[in-house]
Simulated assay, not measured.
Amino acid sequence: MPTHHEDELDYTPTPHNVTRARTRTAHLAAAWGHPALAPDVALVTSELTTNAILHGSLRGRLIRVRLAVVDTTLRLEVSDPRAERVPHPREASPAEQFGRGLALVGALCDDWGHGPRDGVGKTVWAEWKLPG
């Protein structure tokens, strides 16, 4: 399948980089001709990057955020070094502050999942189908 657009950037696993990744992917989605998807891409980037920092980071290792348009799909990937810590959606009680991120991801994209990362770690991905 032809890749029409692609961008990837490594980040140190620190909270301020969640905002940087979110802003970058939203801007790219809009610049690549999909401005209606930019808010959803931004929010999903925020959720997956936060999860990578909280649950998948290791001292001295970077996380990678990749956005690409391949054929008729916009695909976001967030990779981290901890393959053993795979995402598991759960139902949070109304009193819980956390635990809703993956449900939100599932609601905002057409499909999502995870798999091994080339080398070490895992990649969590989200996809949106594009017209055409």
Rank of each mutant, 00 (worst) to 15 (best):
H88R: 12
T25Y: 03
K129R: 14
D80I: 02
E77Q: 13
D110M: 09
T72H: 15
H34K: 05
T19Q: 04
W128G: 13
R117H: 14
R75E: 15
I63P: 12
Q97N: 09
H114E: 08
R59W: 02
H5F: 10
L9Y: 07
L48M: 11
H27D: 10
R100M: 14
A26L: 05
V78H: 05
G99L: 06
A126S: 11
H27S: 12
R100H: 14
G60C: 10
V78K: 02
M1A: 12
W112M: 05
T25F: 03
I53D: 01
P13V: 09
V69F: 01
T19C: 02
L130C: 12
T72A: 15
G121A: 09
T123S: 15
P87G: 03
V44K: 01
K129T: 15
L62I: 00
S46N: 01
D80G: 08
A30S: 14
V44G: 04
G119W: 13
E47A: 11
P89S: 10
T12M: 07
E84N: 00
Y11F: 14
L48V: 09
P2M: 10
E77C: 10
D118L: 07
H55G: 00
A126R: 03
R64T: 15
G113W: 02
H4L: 12
P15N: 03
D71E: 15
G99Y: 04
D40H: 14
T3G: 07
A38G: 06
G106H: 08
H16K: 09
R64L: 01
P2Y: 03
L48Y: 05
A38E: 06
T72Q: 13
W32I: 01
H55I: 01
E96M: 14
P94M: 15
H114T: 02
V41R: 14
P116H: 10
A107P: 04
C109P: 10
L43D: 07
H114V: 00
A42P: 01
D71Y: 11
P131Y: 02
I63T: 07
R24L: 11
G56L: 06
R100W: 13
E91G: 00
G113F: 04
E96T: 11
G99F: 07
A107K: 12
A107F: 06
L67D: 03
T45F: 01
T12H: 09
R24P: 02
G113T: 06
H5S: 11
K122C: 09
L108H: 13
K122T: 06
T23I: 09
L104Y: 12
R82H: 06
A29W: 09
P81S: 06
V105S: 13
P87E: 01
T23H: 05
G119F: 12
H27R: 11
H16R: 08
T72C: 12
V124F: 09
G132P: 07
L48D: 09
V44H: 05
R90Y: 04
I53N: 00
A29D: 12
V69S: 01
A30C: 07
G101Y: 03
W125Y: 15
A68T: 07
M1F: 03
T14A: 12
G106T: 13
T3N: 08
V124Y: 07
V78T: 12
E96D: 15
V69L: 10
V69W: 00
A83E: 12
R64Q: 07
L62N: 05
F98V: 15
E91A: 08
E96W: 11
